[in-house]
């Protein structure tokens, strides 16, 4: 069996005295689509932030086999920059060659249907369009591991379908996608459905 794309072992996290994650353990392999479900305030976003490396757990380990693309739940963007400028800046951060970055940006703008807004500042965009940019930033460098926190929040049906098609294509290339959501549509698409309850993972074989 291949090396897991993501290995999470006994991760604990608390905020003050309140434990949020108690011994979360799971693996995700290349090409898998994994859903992490749970109630509001159950620690899903905290788990994803730990997996992405934004937060440190009190105990436990996270091993990632390669580069990661992280899409936070909230739109974390520069309000006065355009989608084009965001993609240029993040392409620079990822170390992408300019020509590759431009091609990739064009592809994502087309896939998620917001190319007509590429020169408008984020402050002027709708919530759904901002979320498309928020997600595109995570996908820009085509990483082998994607950590997406409610990535299709605010999407219309067409864009949701575009995202599903994109994720199917990415999985075929071997990308592992870990998706946090509080509602599981299309359960049959997921290779693993993990329920985060009382700070621990309870697997639900898909």
């Amino acid at each position: 069996m291949s090396e897991p794309a993501l290995a999470v072992e006994n991760v604990h996290k608390r905020y003050g005295r309140r434990p949020v994650l108690r011994g979360v353990t799971f693996e995700a392999r290349t090409g898998q689509l994994v859903a992490v479900l749970g109630e509001n305030g159950g620690g899903k976003s905290t788990l994803l932030r730990i997996l992405a490396g934004l937060l440190a757990p009190e105990r436990g380990h996270v091993r990632r086999s390669g580069a990661t693309g992280y899409c936070p739940q909230e739109c974390v963007l520069y309000p006065q920059l355009t989608p084009d400028e965001h993609l240029e800046l993040f392409a620079c951060a990822y170390g992408l060659e300019p020509a590759i970055a431009r091609a990739r940006a064009d592809e994502l703008l087309g896939t998620f249907g917001f190319a007509q807004h590429r020169h408008r500042v984020v402050e002027e965009l709708s919530g759904g369009t901002r979320q498309k940019l928020n997600l595109s930033i995570a996908l820009l460098h085509d990483p082998p591991l994607l950590l997406l926190d409610e990535p299709y929040s605010g999407f219309d049906v067409e864009t949701y379908r575009s995202f599903l098609a994109y994720s199917d294509g990415a999985r075929q290339k071997g990308t592992c996608i870990v998706l946090v959501t509080h509602i599981a549509f299309d359960r049959h698409r997921f290779d693993q459905i993990l329920h985060l309850r009382d700070g621990a993972i309870h697997a639900d074989a898909a």
């Binding site: 520069y78 993040f90 951060a93 990822y94």
Partner: peptide
């Protein structure tokens, strides 16, 4: 004012 998105940039590689 840009702390969160700056942190995202650092996570991305800056």
């Amino acid at each position: 004012k840009r702390r969160d998105v700056d942190a995202r940039l650092v996570l991305a590689g800056f």
